[in-house]
Design a protein around this nucleic acid. Sequence first.
DNA 1: TTTATTTACGCAATCGTTCCCGATAACGAT
DNA 2: ATCGTTATCGGGAACGATTGCGTAAATAAA
Lengths: 348, 348
Amino acid sequence: MKFEAVTIKDIARALGISTSTVSRALRDSYEISPETKQLVLDCAEKLNYRPNPIALSLKERRSRSIGVVVCEIANNFFSQVINGIESIAYDRGYNVIISQSRESYDREVIDLQYLASRSVDGLLISLSTETNDLSHLKALHAKGFPIVLFDRITEEINTHKVIVDNFRGAYDATEHLIRNGHTRIAALTNSEFLSITHERVAGYKEALIANGQEVNEDYIQHCFYGGMLFEEIEDAINKLFTQRNKPDAIFATSDKLTTGCLKTLKRRGLKVPDDVSVVGFSNTDIAELIDPPLTVVRQPAFEMGKDATELLLQLIESKRPIKDFEKRILTPELQIRESSFKKMAVTE
Amino acid sequence: MKFEAVTIKDIARALGISTSTVSRALRDSYEISPETKQLVLDCAEKLNYRPNPIALSLKERRSRSIGVVVCEIANNFFSQVINGIESIAYDRGYNVIISQSRESYDREVIDLQYLASRSVDGLLISLSTETNDLSHLKALHAKGFPIVLFDRITEEINTHKVIVDNFRGAYDATEHLIRNGHTRIAALTNSEFLSITHERVAGYKEALIANGQEVNEDYIQHCFYGGMLFEEIEDAINKLFTQRNKPDAIFATSDKLTTGCLKTLKRRGLKVPDDVSVVGFSNTDIAELIDPPLTVVRQPAFEMGKDATELLLQLIESKRPIKDFEKRILTPELQIRESSFKKMAVTE
DNA sequence: TTTATTTACGCAATCGTTCCCGATAACGAT
DNA sequence: ATCGTTATCGGGAACGATTGCGTAAATAAA
């Protein structure tokens, strides 16, 4: 099925003038007489002319669109980030193209390749869990392609970055559990490839140490695919609860891990918080509806999207190469509810 | 910041041949000798040549991308639909561009305009709640632009459509409440502009009538923005519970309405299902974690995205205009949990 | 040897738009 | 009458890639 659009030529032909004149009239150039301008404008209106953004992109060597790569959009955190991205991009006349890596390195590479081959002017990316080799990003970055990293970042690439204070979020969550009388706090976390894993586990460990508790490596369970595969979480929970000293609390470091953890506990018949308390990173908007209401570390996802986009547009629209890069660290919020309260905490 | 890419000309210059030869060599044309082909291929590899999709789009008058317009992606149902869309589009070499109308008619019009001005080959759309005037869609459709409607559709446009059996979903949900002893079932629903509202309310009413209950219009509350504004839901619940005969069950017809309803009930101190039962359309993946576990009508969202995309690609790639349009009706699933069980149901 | 055919490549138009150059006419200044 | 300005517009190249057509050389057929 063909779809024919009105071009600048149609207007030129209809008015018996050249395309240059039409183009200039539409762009309100001083070289065109007011009468001709009006003629062109009226004709364009009548024919319902719309400039062809593709032709423009080719000419101007820019597409006025930015690419976003996240592992999946069916995730509260990322969809909120995307809302933040769009809120800025939309105002500045940029189009947003979203790709999902689905935690796959291969898909991430393919997505990047497509986006970068000149169809987008810049890139916002949160790395996939499988991504260890960064050569695809480095190659782009070396060519001067504008990139801003957010959430799951890497220090190997020198550019703008936006993250939350993962260390602090994890520290606060863990300390909260400690203050509520928990002494055997486990961590359910993502792949060791990810920056967020390091930062959050570090915060968890530091909180334990600062409060005189020992770090027990058996209590730290990594889920490589971060809960994309449900069995991962079941296995991890299994390992935690087949130990001699079963944990009395679980700190889950991502949205999917948190909900996956709760599901597994429920299916195993473990009561939260009576048998085990739970705190998790999560941006779900129904934490209060969960049984029990869930204590969460909530990230300012919308803000993160906004900030990352502002930084990216700054890179894109800058005349000269930028050398000084910024790392914005936003503050997460610990929202305390019932899932983290030990039953006997008071009497202990 | 400029980003220079390697073009077919660079290869031609490097090899001292014409661009036509390079182009044909890359496309493996029979007119090019094996030796030249190899030379070109090697050179392209060495320079890391990537074809410019924008130039191709201009030439072929197609962008190999499709546009998607939904009200918001931070919604389980729509993000699952998008996953379905991408699963097909990706395999067929199409890029997906997502726009959010945020339930605004104006944004829907703007989104459409941008997408349609030749940057996409076709469109998948679920109408915004404000959309009453369809002239923007009709104009595009009249020009032969491929459009597939899904979820929130309209009969005013003759094209492929994909929906779930909303009538049946609502009927089943309502009948389930009736069988559990409820006699005062309220409906919390969307704008009357939306097709899904009509169909779901119709199913609700029919179930009441078929089971010998009366339809009480005071029990039907419309939220124009479908819960985007939280006060809407609070007002609606208020109206329901300030009546003489307070409802003993609520049937919510969308994801946001369902969770919004639960939040409001909780804040008012109403217990589910003791004080009032709740059943709702929802595609949340943590229905089982909610207190109480939520009975939902779940839509095959992924399937819907897949089907709609298949139909759209069929429209796009068809040689002649298609006259015979299909309306696919998928089957929703009632997942029964505890939120719909009246406490005294057994003894009644 | 002459003619026909095949092989292998280049030229140039094209897609829609912009923009650098000219080009023309009108007009005032010299 | 001639020149420089200004206002207004058109021609045509360019962006990157594809492709119909033309053509030279090489080969095969006569």
